[in-house]
């Protein structure tokens, strides 16, 4: 029995929040690695910066262990985010949490930007960095939606304990999928990891997975359908090598096949690519002046914690240069 105090359980009683009466130099949307590092760099440059976040910490919180962030051999996603947030809190950056942005409005020819929240609040700023990250991608096969919450899961650390002693399936072949399979192998009877091509995960993770004797890998295998009655009972798959179909019985399916960018609200405002990622240039600039984007929501390749953090730093520095060129 242990306790996981919230990242936002700020020990200082006066919580810093955003002021709607002032004009910010920069408003950062998002509280994951990209957003937090943008705020850190911007604050150190002397910018008047604030963060608006749906939840601080982002997706990294759902990661049970992070072993590829330079300087930390191994720690949980939550521990890493606590370090990030404490660092940002040290610099007294105001953070508005549990709020969602509805849109960004441009003010005619001026360089002012308005960040409009779903609750109706409006904040004024000269620049914005969008770091809204991404959300789990769905398989998009028949039965997936129907059995979502009835066996189909998207958070292994949340729902894994509910399948103790049962047989489960993990869909995917990247780091997230292999990590989920390792976590689940410890508590369930059997894990079948299904992927339509070859593993993309780091070799070090694949080696760890191979140590479990209750894990079976089915590669070159495509999930066609989730089946069940009241609950899911299994999946229908196609073995691409032999072109044969089979049913794999299972009480649970953990979908870990990557992420989709949280960019919907910006679709009318900014240029997105065919994967709905925000298109940015080498400085993190989007198609609209004064609006930058960092991390998983953008079209930068390879989504990694350290890259999102680095991307945030880059955007803050670019914004700092941009602010020097406009008339405030």
């Amino acid at each position: 029995m242990d306790v996981n105090l919230n990242l936002s359980s700020n020990t200082s009683k006066e919580k810093l929040t955003l002021d709607k009466e002032i004009i910010y130099d920069l408003i950062v949307i998002g509280g994951g690695p990209a957003g937090l590092n943008t705020a850190l760099y911007a604050k150190r440059k002397g910018l008047n910066v604030g963060i608006i976040a749906r939840d601080l910490g982002g997706q990294v919180l759902d990661t049970s262990s992070v072993e590829n962030y330079l300087g930390f051999v191994s720690l949980s996603g939550e521990e890493l985010m606590k370090k990030f947030i404490n660092h940002v809190n040290e610099l007294k950056v105001p953070i508005l949490e549990y709020e969602e942005v509805e849109t960004i409005r441009l003010k005619d020819s001026s360089s002012l930007r308005e960040v409009v929240l779903k609750n109706g609040l409006v904040f004024n700023t000269y620049s914005v960095v969008i770091a809204t990250g991404s959300k789990p991608r769905r398989l998009g096969v028949p039965g997936e939606k129907e059995y979502s919450g009835k066996g189909v899961c998207y958070c292994a650390i949340c729902d894994g304990p509910l399948f103790a002693g049962e047989e489960v399936i993990v869909a995917g072949g990247g780091n997230s999928a292999v990590e989920a399979a390792i976590d689940l192998a410890k508590i369930t009877k059997k894990v079948t990891i299904i992927h339509r091509s070859q593993f993309r995960a780091d070799q070090i993770l694949i080696d760890q997975l191979a140590k479990f004797d209750n894990v079976e890998s089915k590669l070159q295998t495509q999930i066609l359908e989730v089946q069940g009655d009241k609950f899911m009972t299994g999946v229908k798959v196609l073995n691409k090598n032999s072109s044969t179909e089979e049913i794999i019985e299972s009480a649970g399916l953990f979908v870990e096949i990557g992420y989709l960018p949280n960019s919907e609200i910006f679709a009318d405002l900014l240029e997105l690519n065919e994967r709905n990622e925000i298109v940015v240039d080498g400085h993190g600039k989007t198609s609209v002046e004064g609006i930058y984007a960092a991390g998983d929501v953008t079209d930068i390749p390879y989504k990694q914690i350290i890259m999102s953090a680095g991307d945030g730093a880059k955007c803050a520095l670019a914004v700092n240069e941009y602010l020097n060129t406009i008339n405030k």
Partner: peptide
């Protein structure tokens, strides 16, 4: 808490949380 009250969770078909 779904693990402490496992039978009740089964009764309510809990397989994702929070439900």
């Amino acid at each position: 808490e779904a693990q402490t009250f496992f039978d009740m969770s089964e009764e309510y078909n809990v397989s994702s949380v929070p439900k």
